[in-house]
Write a protein that binds this DNA or RNA. Sequence first.
DNA 1: GTCGTTGCAAAGCGTTTGCAGCCTA
DNA 2: TAGGCTGCAAACGCTTTGCAACGAC
Lengths: 136, 136
Amino acid sequence: MQRHTRQGTAIREIVQQSERPLTASEIHRRAIGKLPNLGLATTYRHLRKLESEDRLVGVDYPGQPTRYEWADGEQKIHFGCRSCEKLFAVEEGDDFKEPKPPKLPHGYQVNGGEWILYGTCPACSSSQSSVTPSNS
Amino acid sequence: MQRHTRQGTAIREIVQQSERPLTASEIHRRAIGKLPNLGLATTYRHLRKLESEDRLVGVDYPGQPTRYEWADGEQKIHFGCRSCEKLFAVEEGDDFKEPKPPKLPHGYQVNGGEWILYGTCPACSSSQSSVTPSNS
DNA sequence: GTCGTTGCAAAGCGTTTGCAGCCTA
DNA sequence: TAGGCTGCAAACGCTTTGCAACGAC
């Protein structure tokens, strides 16, 4: 059975309302604003559950902790900024077309994929010098 | 100054000669065949140095340790098998075309990217039932 | 002989798990 | 009231770092 708790609601809302994918500890830090005693383990437990229900997807930026974003059914391309280290989700329609999966050698059955691009985000490329990595 | 050591040579050769991307501990295990006292930390130090020199690239399969492969200048697409958990590098020309980077919203400067596909590899899809994950 | 490199052990970091108490349904 | 959920602390796996000994040049 599935129970409703304030903790689960808070974590879900934070991910749903976030403007970009967040790490578990970023989510935890934001949730603590509402629920000061919330444990980090509880945050992980909810993220794992939501992910297993396909309501959430984890995005891996190499060398950094997993970021989580709400799964709204739309495939996204992710962009990692090498200056401020933030990860952005770029939605289709903004200004690009999604690639089609390539045809692989015989025997490989594809049922998913992820594309991550690296570079400099608008904020960091406008301010020439690199921005000190910060999370929020 | 850069010194020539047996450890560095062994690690470099193992990655160069591998048929697929390997984790640090797989590389270490293979290297121990030649140099029984080789430390895992030394393996990591060499991998990091080779990566910083762009002679090696790290590939991240979500939820698993980083795999390393030799950077032969050719862009590759990676394929992660969800059954045996191995990671394969598929080279262009085998049977697919590489996608072009999409046009992103104004301000995003792209200088790299990675594409990982998930599914079932030939070995696992021929043997219907899933294969117990094993490393070598 | 110099100083980059090594092996070992310990520390660091993100994530998971064990457990007793709590609280939702 | 039953049993899923919580917070805490300990454990875990991968990776990095401190340090004294080693060995390439």
